[in-house]
Amino acid sequence: MIMTNVNTVPGKKIVEHFGIVQGSTVRAKHVGRDFMASLKNLVGGELKGYTELLQDSRKEAMKRMEEQAALMGANAVVNIRFATSSVAQGAAELFAYGTAVRVE
């Protein structure tokens, strides 16, 4: 599956459009990570646990989007956008959407 965040797939021609595909996931931080993060909050610096958590969640959201596109018979997703929102205390929603297309 080819993924891009531009309007086209550079160097290839789009032959068919399938419309919007999306994938999302809601993740909460776990207590251990939260505790370490609050310690780190004292001295500042990167919170590696959170970085990993968000990277994993984004991958999951992308995977769901990809599955949806594959069901439609697409072989590429163009114009991908990401969005983040916090739905509840300590939980974050990660959301990816794009347009499923078929390229040559």
């Binding site: 080819i2 891009t4 909050n41 004292l42 500042g44 970085t51 968000l54 984004r58 991908i80």
Partner: peptide
């Protein structure tokens, strides 16, 4: 062509 991304979470002291 592929999608690439990078992310980081940073806290203040």
């Amino acid at each position: 062509s592929t999608l690439v991304s990078g992310s980081v979470v940073i806290s203040i002291d």
